[in-house]
């Protein structure tokens, strides 16, 4: 903020003083220069012949993909069911592991602030830092291809997400309610069930349906690396350039995701 007084005594106000104004201009100049430089780099690396005929190719693939091969749906029911199972069971399995980890990670419930809490945080971070597709790649190699690998991949990836949101909810509870239950002579576990659990129930339910919704989307691609579900069909069709099948699969995935979003919105609405 800059307030200047002119010779006749009027106070003039401007958002920035001269020095701030110049710094601001220089920052913009440097930012623009960096952007232009990077743009030039990308441009010289791009094979523009491929770029200019992209609309043509896209139109070509599009025309071959239309109309979708509706009859193919009969082979999609089972993989679709697998996908749904991977997402649902994966979410349940991840919650079983995430709830205790969240209690160990929350500052107000952890039995040990240093070793155990940091261990729990490490589990959360490592689970979150690896994409479920990578988890699936690893697990397909370890436990072989199929639905089970996908299920485990989804649950491992979800632990971090659920535990992180849940431990933040635990840290935000009203301690007075916990204090009141403690004062009755309740045991540690009773305090958890009566004092803490009711307070985090809405968060827990919200996190669960939110993650389930995300997992439906993630499990549709797991088949690409052999971890079961509808992605397996997708890869098969892509490999043999069966575009009408691909378009039907994409359509089915779209509908599945829409339905899951609708369900999770309904459930969250009912809880809050």
């Amino acid at each position: 903020m800059a307030i200047k007084q002119t010779t006749d005594g009027t106070k003039v106000w401007a958002r920035r003083n001269t020095k701030e104004q110049i710094t601001n201009w220089i920052m913009w100049l440097v930012g623009t220069a960096i952007f232009m430089y990077c743009w030039q780099g990308i441009s010289s690396e791009t094979d523009w012949d491929f770029f200019w005929d992209a609309p043509e190719i896209a139109a070509d693939i599009g025309s071959r993909a239309m109309p979708p091969k509706w009859g193919y749906i009969t082979t999609l029911w089972v993989p679709l069911w697998d996908t749904l199972n991977i997402a649902t069971m994966g979410t349940v399995l991840s919650l079983v592991m995430a709830i205790p980890i969240a209690f160990l990670a929350a500052r107000n419930t952890t039995p040990d602030k240093y070793i155990i809490r940091n261990l729990a945080l490490l589990i959360i971070v490592s689970s979150r830092s690896i994409n479920s597709l990578i988890w699936a790649l690893l697990l397909v190699a370890i436990i072989g291809p199929g639905v089970f690998a996908g299920l485990v991949a989804i649950s491992l990836r979800s632990i971090g997400f659920c535990a992180k949101l849940l431990y933040e909810a635990i840290e935000e509870i009203d301690e007075k309610q916990v204090e009141a239950i403690t004062a009755t002579g309740a045991s540690r576990w009773q305090v958890m069930v009566f004092g803490i659990l009711p307070q985090i129930m809405p968060a827990l339910a919200g996190i669960t349906v939110f993650r389930w919704d995300i997992n439906i989307r993630e499990s549709t691609v797991l088949g690409l690396v052999g971890a079961g579900g509808i992605g397996l069909q997708m890869q098969g069709s892509l490999n043999i350039l069966a575009w009408p099948q691909v378009s039907l699969i994409l359509l089915v995935i779209l509908i599945a995701v829409l339905v899951s979003e609708w369900v999770s919105a309904k459930v969250r609405g009912a809880i809050i």
């Binding site: 309610q177 009755t184 002579g185 069930v193 009566f194």
Partner: peptide
Amino acid sequence: MIFQEYALVERLSVMENVLSGQLGYVGF
């Protein structure tokens, strides 16, 4: 113990809140 801002467990019923006073006497 009776508290300033009541310290009831807000999302439990009145009955559950009253019964929670007995937690020291019943098992988990």
